[in-house]
Simulated assay, not measured.
Amino acid sequence: MSSLKIVSLGFLFLGVFFLMQIILPFISFQIWETGIKYQNQLISPTTSRSSNVLGVTITNSDNFSYFVSSAQRKNPPNYVEFKLTIPKLKLNKKEVLVDSNDLTRGLAHLPGTALPGEKGNVFISGHSAINFFKDIKDAPFAKLQDLKKGDKILVEAGGSEFVYEVIELKVVKPSDLSVINPPDTVGRYISLMTCVPPGLNFKRLVVLGKMV
């Protein structure tokens, strides 16, 4: 076999390999999403949440849409970030910027939403990516869809630790603001949101946890 044919075959296999890195996660996500929808039909749905969120708009940048909040907190906390740990995903003490709309720096806590331990919904957004192309440090929520009901979410803030338990996973449109609101007015919740399929911008996965 000539060297030219060997090089051509090498490029062909490399092209197929990269293509599969994109296609397989997409197919896997479609199967996973179907399973999540079926599971949610088998359980009692959480209380319907209002889609009206004061001060929150949807901003588009480079074909990527995300939530932006203009809410101002009357009593800011004495910390500018808190730590997020998800044992199931081996995510350990990842910094979350408080009251931030800047997703370029990592995980961002949506301004105006509850602080850890408070009643309401601690709303956190972060990027996902196809694992082959990005390290988990650059896309901390790349494996968020691996979570299941009952998995723990740990938060360290202001010298205290709070434990949440996953109670629901759902896939929504990027324009669905209702996921920002808590399911009720008395519980203490946390929501983790990222793009799905991983690395693409079609839909949003929201993992809802409740403090235990």
Rank of each mutant, 00 (worst) to 15 (best):
M1N: 15
S3T: 14
L4T: 14
S8T: 14
S8A: 15
S8E: 13
L9D: 12
G10L: 06
G10E: 01
L12K: 03
F13Q: 09
V16W: 05
V16K: 07
F17L: 11
F18K: 08
L19Y: 05
Q21I: 08
I23A: 15
P25D: 03
F26I: 06
F26M: 08
Q30F: 11
Q30S: 14
W32Q: 13
E33F: 01
E33Y: 07
T34R: 15
T34W: 12
G35T: 10
G35D: 12
Y38S: 14
Y38W: 11
Q39Y: 11
N40K: 02
N40I: 03
L42Y: 01
S44N: 13
T47Q: 15
T47Y: 11
N63C: 06
N63S: 14
F64A: 14
S65E: 11
V68D: 00
V68T: 09
S70N: 10
R73P: 01
R73Q: 04
K74G: 08
K74E: 14
P77Q: 02
N78D: 14
Y79T: 08
E81Q: 15
F82G: 03
T85D: 07
T85A: 08
N92M: 05
N92D: 14
L97K: 10
V98A: 01
V98Y: 00
S100G: 00
T104I: 08
L107V: 04
H109Q: 06
L110D: 00
L110G: 00
L110P: 02
L110K: 00
P111V: 00
G117V: 07
G117K: 08
G117W: 10
E118F: 02
G120F: 03
N121G: 05
S125D: 11
S128V: 01
I130V: 15
N131C: 01
D135W: 12
F141M: 04
L144S: 07
L144M: 08
D146N: 14
L147I: 09
K148A: 10
D151P: 10
D151Q: 09
I153P: 05
I153N: 07
E156M: 11
A157P: 09
A157R: 09
S160Q: 12
F162C: 07
V163N: 12
V163Y: 06
Y164C: 01
V166I: 11
V166C: 07
V166H: 07
I167F: 03
L169S: 12
V171Y: 06
V172H: 05
V172N: 06
V172M: 01
S175I: 04
V179A: 01
P182Q: 04
D184K: 06
D184M: 08
T185M: 04
V186F: 15
Y189H: 02
Y189R: 02
S191P: 05
C195H: 00
C195D: 02
C195W: 00
C195M: 05
V196L: 04
G199C: 11
N201C: 11
F202N: 15
L208C: 07
L208W: 03
G209R: 04
K210E: 09
M211I: 11
M211D: 02
V212L: 13
